[in-house]
């Protein structure tokens, strides 16, 4: 009993630390997205920080945590920006889960992993998002959607994923599976 107690305590501490770090990251990305991102326009697109964060968490922490983080990120973004709840959550749950599954199949320490995940994630996010908005009667001409929404976002997210991934890896260091006692 005595030998088990410290191990359980350690695991609990790691889990709590992980939850606090992910919660802080979630709040920071949503706040930055709602207050800073609207004023930044690079290559015709605005940064999508929650999407990049979900891709990073999915790659670093796996599909389950990626999906949960994506859901919460979408819900918080909807509250912060008065959006309809569920739309962003749906998009980010799928992105988080797929990024996590993708991370399991490749070496996440290689530069290719976050770049390809950002490209694919942006494409998938934009298509799902456009479909959901279509249901809400918010239509966009296809040419405009591809030329002014998808392509610029694709380029910008691919450029931003490198610093975002490094920052996320630094912030989430010593957590997750790697730090847990064997």
């Amino acid at each position: 009993m005595r030998s088990r107690a410290p191990a359980r305590l350690w695991t609990w501490r790691v889990v709590m630390l992980e939850v606090v770090r992910l919660a802080a990251m979630l709040l920071a990305t949503v706040l930055l997205q709602s207050t800073v991102a609207p004023h930044i326009r690079i290559l015709g697109a605005r940064p999508d920080l929650p999407l990049l964060a979900v891709i990073c968490v999915g790659l670093l922490r796996g599909p389950e945590i990626g999906a949960i983080y994506g859901f919460l990120s979408g819900a918080l973004a909807a509250v912060a920006m008065f959006g309809p709840p569920g739309v962003d959550s749906l998009v980010l749950v799928i992105i988080g889960y797929v990024a996590g599954r993708y991370g399991e199949t490749i070496d996440t320490s290689s530069a290719w992993a976050p770049l390809s995940a950002a490209c694919g994630g942006t494409l998938v996010a934009k298509v799902i998002s456009a479909s959901a908005q279509y249901l809400l009667d918010r239509t966009v001409p296809v040419g405009f959607f591809i030329g002014r929404a998808v392509l610029p976002a694709l380029v910008l997210n691919t450029l931003l994923i490198a610093p975002a991934y490094l920052a996320a890896r630094f912030w989430l260091r010593e957590g997750g599976e790697r730090a847990r006692p064997a």
Binding site: F71, A75, G86, Y97
Partner: peptide, 25 residues
């Protein structure tokens, strides 16, 4: 993941169906 997708769709649907004084609002 499936549960979260269903939950997202449910949130989405309920939000538009409920009145402005509803739970989600």
């Amino acid at each position: 993941m499936v549960a979260l997708v269903i939950l997202s769709l449910a949130l989405f649907t309920v939000f538009f169906r409920e009145p402005a004084s509803g739970v989600l609002h």
